[in-house]
């Protein structure tokens, strides 16, 4: 049995995390979702540092990235991911409440795979996450690991 790869969710808002987890569950996605609360923890997870020192090796199938987070924002995390050979091919989806042009331009320049604005409505939010989940974790073919 092929082990399902994890999804890394970087999000500091508890409600958004709960909704995201709920949507993923409703989608019957059995992937382990690792939740981190800021950009620093997100990079620590990827690099197996800090409290993630003992985690099983391997990149997540997807990084869901909020932009406004404490300590390090999503754009900086994205910059780090894309500039690191070990992580540069990981699909990164920005999931944010920001519609700012600058954020859109910056993230696309940095090579984001998708940019989704969080719907304010609860049901629409669930629906959006469901779609992201089924597309990126199921439909989308991931690049082979360890081939950089």
């Amino acid at each position: 049995m092929v082990e399902l790869r994890t999804i890394l969710l970087a999000e500091d808002n508890r409600k958004d995390v709960e909704l995201t987890l709920e949507a993923m569950a409703e989608n019957n996605l059995a992937n382990l979702i690792i939740v981190v609360k800021d950009g620093v923890e997100a990079l620590e997870y990827l690099r197996c540092q800090g409290k993630f020192k003992l985690r099983k090796a391997g990149n997540p199938a997807l990084v869901l990235l909020d932009i406004k987070m404490p300590r390090m924002d999503g754009i900086e995390v994205l910059r780090n991911i894309r500039s690191d050979n070990a992580f540069k091919r990981i699909p990164v989806v920005v999931l944010t409440s920001s519609r700012e042009e600058n954020d859109l331009i910056n993230t696309y320049d940095l090579g984001v795979n998708a940019y989704v604005v969080k719907p304010v409505d609860f049901k629409q939010f669930i629906e959006a996450v469901k779609q992201i989940g089924s597309f990126w974790a199921v439909l989308n073919e991931l690049p082979p690991e360890k081939s950089f």
Partner: peptide, 13 residues
Amino acid sequence: KDRLGRLAFAVSW
């Protein structure tokens, strides 16, 4: 138990 993905997050909270 069928949503165990939430566990770590719940614990941290």
